[in-house]
Design a protein around this nucleic acid. Structure first.
Lengths: 146, 146
DNA sequence: TTATAAATGGAAACTATTTCTGTTTATCCT
DNA sequence: AGGATAAACAGAAATAGTTTCCATTTATAA
């Protein structure tokens, strides 16, 4: 939360109650959320709360590195908390999302850094995102079935 | 084209003039196209041509493996021709798209096969897509600048 | 050639996202 | 603490993207 505040300040973003609530929401539940879901949850705390503001805030928080944009095909747009300390120079990393509890992990290894040549193509950029089962959900599964 | 026809037949899809035109379009230009762009290009050959039909066909062709869905964040939805022979058993692969000419290449190597454990997460699925400069565009660049 | 299931166009419904405008508010400076 | 200022805000309305529906047409296989 402290980290998030610093990222925001670096980007010239104000720490409004709305944004605090959004960050807390992502910190607490650790799952990916769509703008609609975020609005839904905000309504518990704020009586008036428009979707345009939610869109703006999510994009602003993604731009400054507090959230990241979950990729997919087509419509479904969603965001999740970027768990990584980014202030000491942005470093290349990806995310893995637990399909059971929503926990977001950080993936450091990546074979596709810019400049690498793959199948004759010199890599410029890429999208990589993983889904899986985190350690604790995995052990819970094992217990249950064993 | 022959390959595409077999994939379609396996999936129980009919080879309609519309679909032939769509496949030819992707084969010829080798770039990724949005439904809107596909419709635009179809209008040259077919006077009447609704977007719903374009959506349906693109999804059907993606389902049977002729096209693949280009991933991204949010709205932008697009498709490209899957260059890979898939009939002899579907095999795991990804794509790399040339940002200069749109050429689509096939990436066989992948460190994130299902079951692999990364950062404590057991991988279930993933999205990977690369952008880069293909060999011929790369050498053209070198000539031009040298 | 005919039967059949699939594909089609287009209207309309639906959903998601952005723009716009006037008001409110966090932050910085004194 | 108090005021100036740029940013954030809500909500309406515009825009854009996608899906559903239905009656008609058509590719395929017998």
């Amino acid at each position: 939360m402290k980290e998030a505040y610093l990222l925001m300040r670096d980007a010239g973003l104000k720490l409004t109650p709305r944004r605090q609530a959004i960050i807390a929401m992502f910190s607490d539940s650790r799952v990916q959320l769509s703008p609609q879901e975020v609005q839904e949850r905000l309504k518990c705390q704020f009586i008036r709360c428009g979707l345009p503001g939610v869109y703006r805030n999510l994009e602003a928080l993604a731009d400054c590195g507090v959230l990241f944009r979950v990729v997919g095909f087509g419509r479904e747009r969603s965001y999740a908390l970027c768990c990584c300390s980014q202030r000491d120079g942005v470093h290349h990393h990806h995310h893995v999302i637990c399909i059971s509890c929503g926990l977001v992990g950080q993936v450091e290894s990546c074979a596709y850094q810019e400049g690498v040549v793959i199948e004759g193509f010199r890599v410029v950029s890429h999208v990589l995102q993983l889904r899986g089962i985190c350690a604790s959900c995995s052990s819970r599964e094992t217990e249950a079935s064993g």
